[in-house]
């Protein structure tokens, strides 16, 4: 019985990793597409602040192109951490969505610190025996408690808005509601476990430490209050498993939305490395049926594009 939460957690983490990698691979392997950028493009070093681009320069193809990674980071980091676009364009939703997302980040941070502490305890127990260990435990306590509270508050707010705003309600599916309810139940259960039986996260931290050290033993205190921590661990694991299988995997998609589409302004210079890929696209067959195309599966894009209608 003591193995069950460990097995569920291992399976969940494995599925999460595989699903996220699969999504990354799927997105990366998509064929080249036409340019469809949207300004401001953050890596335009001196022009991003007003949305300008290298196309403002005469004979831009003869000039070195400046791509500022710092510019991208300056937009990406606040966007990821604070959902800046949502704050600017939809503040009512932001006051719900931001705590939800930030709470998740804190809980993820808390889990990472638990993992690190667990590993340290296994490798160099003397390191965490004293003040440093206490500090880590306080960090875990702070991140976990605040993170869960924020995430629950945010998820409840998002659910309330989804149920009461007619515009959101019309576009909401059963699964959209289920996702939020799932979050609320899983985090609610974990928060209850924290308040009732695991006030210093010692049980949870021990569980995570055992996970990373592959030591699936019964936890201290589990006998006394077995159900809440176990159910919480199982529910959170299932949540980890579930997220990448749904549209909540938008954290992967968003990367591509920005880097492969919105900010993808890399020009196809004559004789450059893009030409070969483009030529590969132009020889693909097409089957569009309208009378001005008549794609029959043997006609290629290049054939269709060079048809002469003037005769």
């Amino acid at each position: 019985m003591q193995l069950v939460p460990y097995i569920v957690a291992y399976v969940a983490i494995a599925i999460f990793i595989v699903a996220v990698i699969a999504r990354f691979v799927m997105w990366s392997k998509m064929p080249l597409h036409v340019r469809w950028e949207l300004y401001p493009v953050a890596h335009e070093a001196k022009k991003a602040h007003y949305g300008g681009s290298y196309l403002e320069e005469s004979e831009w193809w003869n000039k070195p192109r400046e791509v500022s990674l710092l510019g991208e980071l300056k937009v990406m980091i606040p966007e990821i951490l604070f959902l800046v676009a949502l704050k600017e364009h939809n503040p009512k939703l932001w006051i719900r969505s931001f705590p939800f997302h930030f709470g998740l980040y804190l809980v993820i941070g808390c889990t990472v610190v638990m993992m690190g502490t667990g590993l340290l305890a296994a490798i160099a127990p003397e390191l965490i025996a004293g003040g440093f260990g206490d500090l880590l435990r306080y960090v875990i306590l702070g991140l976990g408690a605040v993170g869960m509270a924020l995430a629950i508050f945010g998820a409840l707010g998002l659910l309330q808005r989804r149920l009461t705003d007619p515009a959101l309600r019309d576009a909401t599916s059963g699964a959209d509601l289920f996702n939020l309810v799932f979050f609320i139940i899983a985090f609610g259960c974990a928060f209850a476990s924290f308040l009732i039986v695991d006030r210093d996260f010692a049980i949870t931290a021990a569980f995570v430490a055992n996970l990373v050290t592959f030591n699936p033993v019964a936890l201290p205190g589990m006998d006394a209050a077995f159900y809440l921590p176990t159910i919480s661990a199982a529910l959170l694991s299932l949540l980890v498993l579930y997220i990448p299988l749904t549209h909540m995997s938008h954290f992967v998609g968003k990367y591509f939305a920005y880097h492969a589409i919105r900010w993808n302004d890399a020009p196809n210079l004559k004789g450059g490395d893009q030409e070969e890929a483009i030529n590969g696209m132009l020889v693909r067959p097409l089957t569009w049926s309208a009378s001005h195309i008549k794609g029959d599966g043997t006609k290629r894009w290049a054939d269709a594009a060079t048809e002469d209608f003037s005769k």
């Binding site: 998509m30 597409h33 469809w36 939809n90 969505s97 705003d165 938008h250 696209m281």
Partner: peptide
């Protein structure tokens, strides 16, 4: 289809899959 819509496949899939229906 990659053949018929290589021109916009990636932007299309991105927009089809990830809307959070937030109405922003």
């Amino acid at each position: 289809s990659e053949d018929n819509n290589w021109t916009f496949l990636q932007p299309l899939v991105m927009s089809m899959e990830h809307c959070a229906k937030c109405q922003t």
